[in-house]
Design a protein around this nucleic acid. Sequence first.
DNA 1: GATCTCTTACTTTTT
DNA 2: GTAAGAGATC
Length: 854
Amino acid sequence: MSTLFGESSGAVGGVPYDLFGPAVLAPTAGDESRDGSGGSGGLPRLDAEGLLDGLNPQQRAAVVHIGAPMLVVAGAGSGKTRVLTHRIAYLLAARGVRPGEILAITFTNKAAAEMRERVSALVGPRARAMWVSTFHSACVRILRSEAKRLGFGSSFSIYDAADAQRLITLVTRDLDLDPKRHPARGLAAQISNLKNELIDWEMARDRASSHPERTVAEVYAAYQQRLAQANALDFDDLIMTTVNLLQAFPDVAEHYRRRFRHILVDEYQDTNHAQYVLIRELVGQPAHGAGRAVGTVATGADETAGAGSATAAAGAGAAGAAVAMGESATWPSGAVPPGELCVVGDADQSIYAFRGANIRNIVEFEEDFPAAAVILLEQNYRSTQTILSAANAVIARNNQRKAKRLWSDAGDGEKIVGFVADNEHDEAAFVAEEVDRLTDAGLARPADVAVFYRTNAQSRVFEEIFVRVGLPYRVVGGVRFYERREIRDLLAYLRVLANPADTVNLRRILNVPRRGIGDRAEAALAGFAEAERIGFPAALARVGEVPGLAARSAKAVREFAALLTGLRAVEAQGPVALVEAVLERTGYLAELLAEDTIESQGRVENLQEFVGVVQEFVERNPEGSLAAFLEQVSLVADADQIPTDDGSDGVVTLMTLHSAKGLEFPVVFLTGLEDGVFPHLRTLGDPAQMEEERRLAYVGVTRARARLYLTRSVVRSAWGQPAYNPASRFLGEVPDALIDWRRLAEAAPPPATRTWGSGSAGSSFGSAGLGAAAGGSASARRPLANSPFAGRARPAARAVVELNQGDRVTHDSFGLGVVVAIAGFGDSAEATIDFGAEAGTKRLLLRYAPVEKL
DNA sequence: GATCTCTTACTTTTT
DNA sequence: GTAAGAGATC
């Protein structure tokens, strides 16, 4: 059936389209007579007009738009989620679209959940029939149902970055590559980049023109072979394989095009090439941007379609009507007309280019889709004008961008507060004091406050101070639950049970817990598998034939195989029973319990928590299989712990700028504003990366609703030694009139100049300003003890803390802890300290460890 | 095969 | 300052 709309009004395909056709054509719908009249009475009923209430003209135009692909350029805080959710509701209410015809794509599960929730609030339970999901889970869903076509089982494993890296390590070992010169991490990144560009291993091989490229291609080929053997796909494969599927099987593509008549994409600026092509394939309209299609096979019908609508819609203004007419006029009967595409994004918030996001997707949207409508949302409903002016001023320094200026009618509000600390501890102390002051004055609750920094390592100092002053906080990011060793071990067992071919995970658990199958035994098995051209799992079954395997090892392997067989028998009893059986029968739990250290107890607790996760899953999905559970875990990764505001005082949130995207807080501290920290050291020499850093600054600034603090530190210890970094260039880009400097650097910028003057005689100071950070040379890191400011700064040679068993301490990164044991004395004194379930137990050399007695 | 010690290299990372 | 990985040693 068709959701095309005819000339002006009337019913097409049984769906009534009245009223709305013409209105759409005016992108700026004039004045918004808020329709305060009685028109929208009944609440529960889906009221199309009511959905437009309270929207500004641009938002309204985006909600109501019909036909041609639409780009909504949504500046920070301009209500893009509102536009998306209202558009979806409006499609249902006004245009008779069925929920099942809607596919809404986001990048994070959190965003997907939020969108689903907000749509449900508007349209009720009907929302359940829609696909509101991440790119990856949408692809998994498609791949599982079409797995047969591609020749792999529908129970394929999903390898995350860590699994992928492990497998690449195995591959490089097989290929006899020097792991020093070819680190798995780098190879994994390169292969990932290729996949993001939809370059498969054969294409990579054919194009490789240099030795390093040939090496990557070789690894890539072997890696894909191993993945296939393991019946596994990595994250990037999920997208690329789906694209391949749609391109190779026109009937499959048509099936999904018929199904998804409306495709909405959030955070479009973060899409990579593969995701872009995926969207294009699903919409069914080939892009017109020249030379874009890498390995694209468009069907004949599509070509016709694209050309038809492009020509017809040449007049950009009247896009909607033109496309509609063009389509109905030129569409070959039986073919599926393109779906409606609505993408929302903000090029200024593109901060994932380093991971393959391609900013051109949004910048050149109009070239890709010549009939496209573009709507600009510039009114910001989040921040004060002061904050927006700062954001505008900073981002305006980027050359590669389209002009856009956020504005607000919320008034100027408070000035931005600037603060220069002598060292990072003072910077953190200032933040803590300020939060304290605001909360005491009733101006904010801890939950209203966020502290942002460039890198995770910077959270340490804040935690230390916050613990000391008793300010409740939560760090987002860092070591995640699902990345903990014991959790990954347990997951590896489950994955092997679900997918016996999963070699990477099988080899991970082969000797975990230790059962006497060491490296030699593993190598013998791998060699045998290679020689016999069978998979590693098959080699286990034929252990008797493996040459060079000690009798004792062979016995251990047999027992291991029997263990797995026994566990598979438990699978029918459900995931919970299975997980418990794994923990029991493998001896994993017993080993941890026997260890009986604080650390092992923490691990046991984590495993218990994991069992809880499984229980919860089963309660919610009574029919849920192990495979379904594993999929959820793979794709949800860490169901992020951004504190939700429940109305209580809550806690201060600490996170990196990257994690901050999409969030907002009444009070924001943007810290570490130093060249070399933010912008990061590695970006100083690269204009493109610098622009990305600036976008990151823009994201940070625009998270703030009412109060923004910009802080930096004159000296900061990096890698254990103090470094003097010049003020961040971003600070200088904020108009001074907007900033109320609470404290500035000492008049004579002493240590920095002196250090520089004495160190690098010939270097020009101008470039040295950057070099101060970039060089990381010894001269830049003179110990503070020599400086006149040593008293204020952190002591370079720390006095060894005297501790006794049972003392309570705080540690820069681990937080609160209790001393379990002490060994040695003087400079070699060593303490074993329990930092609780999160950090576990650590053995620290007190001479260096940043611990303080409480 | 397990354990210890030493070296190394440290962005960001929605999935 | 830390943690992971490699190499040496028990």
